[in-house]
Simulated assay, not measured.
Amino acid sequence: MTLTIVSLLPSLQNTNGDAENAVVLESRARWAGLDARVVAVESASDLPEHVDAVVLGSGSDASLDISRERLLGLVDELRRWGTEGVPILAVGTGWELLSWGIERADGSTVEGLGIVAGRGVPRARRITGDLIVQVPRIGQLVGFENHARDYVGAEASPLGRVRAGTGNGRGSGQEGVRMGDVIGTHLHGPVLAKNPRLADSILERMCSRAGLAYTPGAQAAVVDGYAESARHAQLKAAGVAPAD
């Protein structure tokens, strides 16, 4: 069996390299001795017959309308995947497009697909910098946030608690959203390359659904050593003590 990871709209939603999270999943699956592939999906006609995980990266605000239009052609599949437990990782504007909607600073709005709770709302100034998040059952996640909107309406279902940085903002102390196996986050990096534990948790879910066993391979241990060194350096720079 070949695990199929769909990379949604990589031509539009890859401003911060977040579409490469799909490659991280593919690589770690292969290192574990599993067959895996990444399928780039720009429209419904590109969809493979079977999907084991979905990655939707972040794009510029200039591409919001065209990205939304293309995602509308996939909304039935996105809702079905979310209901069936297919892991979906959405970052930045990709996450916002799956929400209730996006409010722009000029007063206009972009209607979301309603896959996850909450919406993006304007903030006074853009936030950039290190973001450290404590996530239940996974530990500390590190990344870089770069967004001009806060996120409200997901207070009951955050991905985790902010240890350093802003995250969802508005004084919530929270970052991201998690609804079942659908994850939305501001964490760039790409997040799965910087945080192998999160990648492995997604792969474990993928394999469980497919009736496969997942054990990280030897090459993963080598790469994870680099990620761990970088993670500790980022924690130190952010003034956060390692907690796991």
Results as ranks from 00 to 15, higher is better:
160 G>S: 05
149 R>H: 12
157 S>C: 14
140 Q>C: 03
177 V>D: 07
194 K>P: 04
91 V>N: 06
122 P>Y: 11
90 A>Q: 04
91 V>Y: 04
188 H>I: 10
162 V>G: 03
179 M>F: 06
170 R>A: 13
100 W>A: 15
124 A>Q: 13
130 D>N: 14
81 W>M: 01
135 V>C: 11
84 E>S: 01
133 V>K: 07
190 P>H: 02
168 N>K: 09
191 V>S: 07
183 I>E: 03
138 I>W: 07
140 Q>F: 03
89 L>P: 05
88 I>N: 11
96 E>G: 02
203 L>R: 01
178 R>C: 10
169 G>I: 14
192 L>I: 15
171 G>L: 12
160 G>P: 01
113 L>I: 14
110 V>R: 05
150 D>L: 06
92 G>E: 03
182 V>C: 03
81 W>Y: 12
102 I>Q: 05
115 I>K: 00
113 L>Y: 02
119 R>W: 10
131 L>K: 02
96 E>Q: 15
170 R>M: 13
197 R>P: 03
199 A>S: 05
86 V>N: 09
145 E>A: 05
194 K>I: 00
151 Y>A: 15
162 V>N: 09
85 G>M: 00
90 A>C: 04
83 T>L: 11
108 S>T: 15
155 E>N: 11
190 P>M: 13
126 R>G: 02
140 Q>G: 03
134 Q>W: 00
166 T>S: 07
120 G>C: 00
155 E>Q: 13
119 R>T: 04
91 V>T: 15
167 G>Y: 06
204 E>C: 14
82 G>T: 10
196 P>Q: 13
103 E>Q: 12
160 G>V: 08
152 V>G: 00
149 R>T: 14
93 T>D: 06
124 A>L: 13
127 I>C: 05
122 P>C: 15
190 P>S: 11
88 I>F: 01
136 P>F: 01
138 I>C: 08
194 K>N: 14
143 G>F: 00
109 T>D: 10
138 I>P: 00
84 E>H: 10
204 E>G: 01
163 R>G: 12
92 G>K: 06
159 L>Y: 11
168 N>L: 03
119 R>N: 01
177 V>K: 08
156 A>I: 10
